[in-house]
């Protein structure tokens, strides 16, 4: 974390000229660099993570020359449309709302959303009959799980990061039951979860998995089912400008081939500790 900041400070201090896009034939990919283990900056100041490795492999398979840059999550879609870069590879879920603005490749990963509480919470033993709640086409058990979730969270304060599918889910499904608090960064949400200002926090399993295995997250635990589909979309994909559909298709084919030969699963296992790869 500390080195990441140094990199940021240096970048801010030394990038004083007007930056302009480079030209010709190089496909410019952009990631956030602040969402481990998807994408982050390591102690040497370099980008690393599941999507960094994935980007290399996809560009090789699609036989295109690529460059990778860091950009803020806030405003990442407007930046793509303005032409700051050509592809978003930043743990972005494919949703109907985003599809109105941009186009996506096929999904390469998916990470269910999980509610997390601290171990002194009255909710800590909450669980449902199903472990996984897919909102798309719910069976009776899933319907019951959703009802149980609504009941358990009734009157609770739930924290979530701004501009995420998790916020969209809360607004769509639990608006009447809960009090939603939104945060600019996941770290601020973590502080308030630890301080007990929010009863529950909602984020992707891929994020929680790492935090819960560390010292500062050892008093936290996931409760209830992992939630997918519906507002969570069809998994995580690469984002493109609408006019670049051909490029999107090119990358989709590359993802297909990685799914087929098992490299994608292995890569996901390596970075997330569980198989978050798309099938």
């Amino acid at each position: 974390m500390k080195h990441l900041i140094k990199t940021g400070a240096l970048a801010a201090a030394f990038s004083m000229g007007i930056m302009s896009a480079q030209a010709d034939n190089v496909i410019r990919l952009a990631t956030e660099g602040a969402y481990p283990p998807w994408n982050a900056v390591n102690s040497a100041g370099q980008l690393e993570g599941f999507e960094i490795e994935l980007a290399d492999e996809l560009c090789a398979r699609a036989k295109v020359e690529c460059s990778l840059q860091q950009t803020a999550w806030d405003g990442i879609i407007p930046s793509l449309q303005q032409g700051k870069f050509d592809v978003i590879i930043a743990g972005m879920s494919i949703t109907d709302k985003r599809k109105k603005k941009i186009t996506f490749s096929r999904a390469y990963a998916s990470s269910p959303a999980f509610f997390v509480v601290s171990d002194d919470s009255p909710l800590k033993d909450f669980s449902t009959e199903v472990d996984s709640l897919a909102l798309g086409d719910m069976d009776d058990k899933e319907q019951a799980a959703l009802m149980a979730l609504k009941k358990a969270l009734d009157g609770k304060t739930v924290g979530v990061q701004k501009g995420t599918i998790h916020l969209n889910f809360l607004k769509e499904y639990l608006k009447d039951e809960i009090d939603i608090r939104t945060y600019a960064t996941q770290e601020q949400l973590d502080l308030d979860l630890q301080a007990g200002r929010v009863d529950v926090a909602l984020a992707a399993m891929s994020y929680w998995h790492k935090l819960l295995s560390k010292e500062e997250g050892k008093n936290l635990l996931t409760v209830g089912p992992g939630v997918t589909e519906g507002p969570f979309g069809e998994g995580v994909g690469l984002g493109f400008r609408k006019k670049d559909q051909a490029l999107a298709d090119q990358f989709s084919v590359a993802i297909d081939s990685m799914v087929a030969d098992g490299t994608l699963s292995a890569m996901a296992q390596k970075w997330f500790g569980f198989d978050a790869a798309a099938k």
């Binding site: 806030d74 405003g75 879609i77 407007p78 985003r98 603005k101 701004k162 501009g163 939104t182």
Partner: peptide, 11 residues
Amino acid sequence: YKEIASEYFSP
């Protein structure tokens, strides 16, 4: 304002 800006991707 911030919420609407990020919801519509149009600040």
